[in-house]
Amino acid sequence: MNRTEPRGGLRVAVVDYGAGNLVSIEQALTFVGADVRIATQPADLEDAEAVVVPGVGAARPAMRRLARAGLVDPLLRWIALGRPYLGICLGLQLLFDGSDEDGAATFGVIPGRTARLEGAPTLPHIGWNQVERRREHVLFTGLVDGTDFYFVHSYAGRPEGATADAVTLAETEHGGRFVSAVDRGNVLGVQFHAERSGGAGLRLLGNFTRWATALTAGAGAERSPVGAGGTAGGD
């Protein structure tokens, strides 16, 4: 049960901007063999190979805290450089242009907005619900389509425009259908809490580390210092 591989595993930076519980995500990633470090400032991303952005709550305070920590631009550069990113819950929602919850502008990496769940019989949407795939992805290797994962949220990202179908990896039903997983190349996001989804969640996180390891290995030589204070990006 306490399988830990503190050294030699994928170096995963879990971004800490005061938006929620990191014990469970740290514990779950360690269980699947990652070498986890908590990132509270840009320098903490420097030797990381993958980034996980967790979080619960509203977008505006989250963006404010990320900005205060100087992490917004480094994370945007990280994504632009094609490096592996996993957003969980709020960490997924931040990928969109903005949030209807409080009008905050967010990363703008995926066209669309975060909107309240429509037609939901109960809000917040709390509990285990089936994640139905729109297509296959390494993230779901070894998991039956329709597997239950644990959700806690009232809002969800809604992809818009020409790429909406392409980025939608999975959907879930709660009154209406909403997007519960997204995929945009090096950027993955899940609305559910994989770190709290028992064996299925651990499998998904293990799949993420394998995917990220493969992506990092295939990325080649050009590796800019993402965390080094604004000089990355070929200028």
Binding site: V23, S24, Q27, A28, R196
Partner: peptide, 24 residues
């Protein structure tokens, strides 16, 4: 656990709640 955990008992302030959430 690796599943959701609700903790109660002795929480009297937002600071108490922060500590309990911080503990996992």
């Amino acid at each position: 656990a690796y599943i959701p955990l609700t903790v109660g008992g002795g929480v009297r302030s937002t600071a108490d709640m922060r500590d309990v959430l911080g503990a996992g």
